[in-house]
Nucleic acid binder design. Structure first.
Lengths: 114, 114
DNA sequence: CTGTATCCATGATGATACTG
DNA sequence: CAGTATCATCATGGATACAG
């Protein structure tokens, strides 16, 4: 098999890995919110109507563990915390772009024969 | 705003729509299995180690409702059923390809500083 | 072969209140 | 501001048995 080629089983495995990392309602939206300039906990929450502090807190931790974002604490008073996406996180852009395109198109598709 | 441009809120919305449709451990793997030549219930199940009939059955229904696959019944004896991906489903290919690439790379990334 | 019916475990998500 | 602590709820997925 030529280099770079994968078996269907490997492909399925990698897709499942990816699904696992970005799974859930909020992970990608959180990254998108941060990436578009919302770097503080409160800002992120405001940018994502419906998310609770508990969920946001947990998701931020997961994303940090997967090296998709970085958490920086500033010991000012009141203490502030900054979240920024990592360079590694930017690898997700093509994927996210595809999801935006597909989601947009899918909405149109479902309308067709509603 | 130029045509085709989306606000960050719209983007998040579309990404969430897409996530909703492909969410879960099995939907994309099922489509991939069917697409690579497993068109019968039993074949799909065999191609996806770990999936149960209950889950497969439910996922197939969801996918059919989202127009991603087509179910055809042949009234032979014993009755056979054929699942095929729709043309619309093929729109997912760029997305799936990106997920394969990302999943493959992510595995390497996590190994780096294990 | 192609499913359906139950039952059950777990995790994901949500509501709310509270702390440093 | 930036979370944590509890409690409640719901969806997902799995085990197993059975039916047409």
């Amino acid at each position: 098999m030529a280099a770079g080629e994968l078996t269907i089983d490997q492909k399925i495995k990698y897709v499942q890995d990816t699904l696992f990392v970005i799974s859930g309602k909020w992970k990608l939206p959180i990254l998108m919110a941060i990436n578009s300039g919302n770097n503080r906990f409160r800002d992120i929450q405001r940018a994502l109507p419906g998310i609770t502090t508990r969920v946001l807190s947990k998701e931020l931790k997961d994303l940090e563990e997967n090296r998709l974002l970085k958490r920086t604490v500033y010991n000012a008073s009141p203490a502030t915390v900054d979240y920024t996406v990592t360079t590694y996180c930017r690898n997700l852009k093509p994927l996210v772009d595809e999801m935006i395109k597909w989601g947009e198109n899918h909405r149109a598709e479902l309308k067709k024969e509603a």
